[in-house]
Design a protein around this nucleic acid. Structure first.
Lengths: 346, 346
DNA sequence: ATTGGCAGTCTCGGCGTTGGAGTGCTAACG
DNA sequence: CGTTAGCACTCCAACGCCGAGACTGCCAAT
C-alpha cells in the first residue's frame, strides 16, 4: 500500500478526527462539526475540500449526499496502523480486572470463562476466547482408571496442568492392577513428550508380542486422535452488548453474525491464525472472508499459559468501535490471564 | 383454580382454536377466521359472544379494539393443562436426533453441548442445559498428581464417570510416591461414598498425629468446598433463533432476556427447582418471578445420568410458542441424552 | 340461544410536505 | 494557489393526514 504515505499531515489529522468523532458518537461527521470541534483555525469550506479528497482516495464515504462523512474500511485501517494514539486502560478498569482475577478460579476453564465475561463487560463487545491448543503440549502424567472390565478412563495431565480425559474400550477384561502397572510404565516412557514425539515413543515400547502393548497402543491412539481431531471451542460472552449498538437495530444483520458466533467453527479458524509474536491483531470489515463479519471488526491477541500452550483472546464488534480503548483492554486482559494461568501451570 | 372447570365444551374448543392458531401464525385471531377455519357450523357472531366471555374471564385479551384475540398467560396455562393434545415428535426429527447422538461424544460435557445445540435447532428456541448436580454423587476414584513439591492436583472420578479436578496447595513438600500411597488409601476408604457421608469417613481415617492425616483433610476439605460452592453453569444455544421471532423485533425486550441467559445465575435457580418426578414442567409468562421472563415461557424437564446424577434440560422462548411440539421435542432429547449418558456412566 | 346487519373504533400503510443538515460549486480574497 | 464566504441544491427524516381494512359490540330478528 503506497497510499499509506500519500496523505499529508492535515489530511491525516482530518481523517483521525473523523474516525474519533464517528466512533464516539455514531453520527456521520460534517465539515462544520469538524471545523468547530477540531480545526478552529480552518473554515468549513477548506475542510470540505479535504473531505472530498479523502472520499476520492477511498478513506471516507458518505451515506448519502446530504450527510456527513464516515470512515471506510480503508480509513479505519489507516487509522489503526498510523494514527491511533497508544492508549492505556484507565485505573478504574485496571483495578476492576485485577480484582476479578485476584481470587481467580482454580482451573483453566474457570479462568477462561471469567476472561470472556470480563472482556465483554469492559469492552462492550462480544468477547471470544479459545483454550490453548494442546496438540503439541507435553504429557505430564497419565492415569488409567478401570470403569468396567473392558473399558478404562484415560486421564491425561498435560503441561500447564491441562486435563484431558477419554473413555477407551478394551478388547478384553483388564484389572485395575494391570491398568495401574501400565499407567506406571506409560508415565515412565512418555512423560515430558508430546505431539509427533509420542509416535516414536510408542514404537519403542517393547516387543510386539505382549497383550499390554496392544492395549497401550489403543490408549495412545485414542489420545492422539482426541488431541488432533478435537475442534477448538470458542467461548463467547456479551452478545447482549451488541443489541445496544445502533448498527444492529436491524436484527437481520445480527442474525448472520450470531450464527457465526454460536456455531463457532469458522471463528475458530480465524482465531487460530492469530500470530503468536504479534501484539494485537485487528481485522476490519471486509478484510474478513466471512460475509457475516463484513461490517464487523475483530481485535485479537494471544495469551500464554506455558511454553507450548497459547490461546487466543479478543473481541468482535461493529467496525465502528473505539479501537484505541478496545486494544488497550484486550491487551490488559490477555496479560492478566497470562499471569493467572502461569500461576496454575507453575 | 376453580376456573379450570368453569369452561363449557364449546368455550374450551374456542380457546384451543385461538391458542393453536395464534401460536402458529402470530396474528391475533378474529371471529371470522375462527368460524371459517374451525367452526363452520357457527356464525362469527356466536363466536364473538363466546370470545367476549373468554375475555371477561381472563383467558383471552385483545391488543386493541379492532384486533383479534390473543391468549393471556391464564389462557396458555389452561391450554397446556387441559387442552393440549399429546404429541409425538415426527419421524424426521426423531431420526435427526438419533443420528446426532449415534456417535455421541465420549464425555459428559460433549453430550450436554450437543444436546443444547440439537434442542435449539429442533425447537427454534433458546436451549438451556445444566450439568448434573454432583454434591451427592459417590466417589469412584481419587488420584493425586504432584505438580510442584508443595502442590498437588486432585482428580476425582464420580459416579457416572464425571471428572472433577482441583489444585491443592500443601503445607510441606510431598513426593509423588507419598501422594500415590495416600491416593491408594483414600481410594480404599472413600470409594463408593459421597455427600455428607464423606465427612464421617474422614474422621475414621486414623489417629490425628500423622502428617498424612492433615494433608488428607486438606484435600478432602477442598473437594467438599469445591463440590458445594460451585454454582451451576447453564449452557445455552440458539439465541439466534430468537431474532426471527416477531416479538423481539424490539431489541429492548431481548436485551433483558439475554442478560438473564448470559449471566445464568438466576436461570440456574429456576432450573434447579424442576422436580425430578414430573414429566415436563411449563412455566408461562408472569408465572416467572424474573421480570426479564415476563413475556417468555420455559419448557423444562430432567434427564438422568446415574442414580444420583440428574440435570435439567429445556428451552426458553416467547410465550407464543408451539407448546405441544416443543414439549414433545424437549422430552425426546431428554430421553435420548439419558440413554447416551447411561452408556457413559455404565 | 343464534344470527344478520350495521355503526363504531382502531391500526397500518401510503403520500405529500416541510425543516434541517450538509454538500459542491463559484467567485472573491490574500 | 490555497483559503474562504455565499448560495443553490439534494436528500433524509419526521410529521401529519387520509383511506382501506379488520374486527368489534350491540341490536333486532329468528
Amino acid at each position: 500500500m503506497i497510499e499509506s504515505t500519500n496523505l499529508d499531515g492535515r489530511k491525516q489529522q482530518i481523517l483521525k478526527a473523523v474516525v474519533s468523532d464517528y466512533t464516539a458518537t455514531g453520527i456521520p461527521v460534517g465539515s462544520q462539526v469538524l471545523a468547530a470541534k477540531y480545526f478552529i483555525a480552518l473554515s468549513s469550506a477548506t475542510i470540505r475540500n479535504e473531505l472530498a479528497d479523502l472520499v476520492g482516495t477511498g478513506y471516507l464515504a458518505q451515506p448519502h449526499t446530504s450527510a456527513g462523512r464516515i470512515p471506510t474500511d480503508r480509513g479505519y485501517r489507516y487509522f489503526v496502523d498510523f494514527l491511533m494514539a497508544p492508549e492505556a486502560a484507565p485505573p478504574g478498569i485496571r483495578r476492576t480486572v485485577r480484582q476479578e482475577f485476584e481470587h481467580a478460579p482454580n482451573s483453566l476453564e474457570g479462568v477462561l470463562e471469567k476472561a470472556a465475561m470480563v472482556l465483554a463487560q469492559i469492552t462492550g463487545n462480544v468477547s471470544l476466547v479459545t483454550a490453548p491448543e494442546t496438540s503439541e503440549a507435553r504429557i505430564k502424567h497419565i492415569d488409567l482408571v478401570s470403569l468396567e472390565p473392558t473399558s478404562t478412563l484415560v486421564i491425561l495431565v498435560l503441561e500447564g496442568n491441562v486435563i484431558k480425559q477419554q473413555i477407551v474400550n478394551l478388547e478384553r477384561a483388564t484389572s485395575q492392577e494391570d491398568l495401574s502397572r501400565m499407567a506406571a510404565m506409560l508415565n515412565h516412557k512418555v512423560r515430558g513428550h508430546g505431539g509427533a514425539d509420542l509416535t516414536t515413543r510408542i514404537s519403542q515400547l517393547g516387543p510386539d508380542r505382549s497383550e499390554q502393548r496392544r492395549i497401550l497402543e489403543k490408549v495412545l491412539e485414542s489420545i492422539k486422535a482426541y488431541q488432533s481431531q478435537r475442534q477448538t471451542v470458542v467461548l463467547h460472552d456479551g452478545v447482549r452488548n451488541l443489541l445496544r449498538q445502533p448498527e444492529f437495530v436491524e436484527v437481520s444483520r445480527l442474525e448472520e453474525l450470531l450464527e457465526l458466533i454460536e456455531q463457532g467453527a469458522q471463528l475458530a479458524g480465524i482465531l487460530q491464525q492469530v500470530a503468536f509474536d504479534k501484539d494485537v491483531e485487528i481485522i476490519i470489515g471486509r478484510e474478513n472472508t466471512s460475509s457475516g463479519l463484513r461490517e464487523c471488526s475483530l481485535v485479537l491477541t494471544t495469551y500464554r499459559m506455558a511454553e507450548r500452550l497459547r490461546g487466543t483472546i479478543g473481541i468482535v464488534g461493529p467496525t465502528r468501535m473505539l479501537y484505541g480503548q478496545v486494544v488497550a483492554r484486550v491487551r490488559l486482559v490477555s496479560q492478566t490471564i497470562s499471569e493467572a494461568l502461569a500461576g496454575l501451570a507453575h
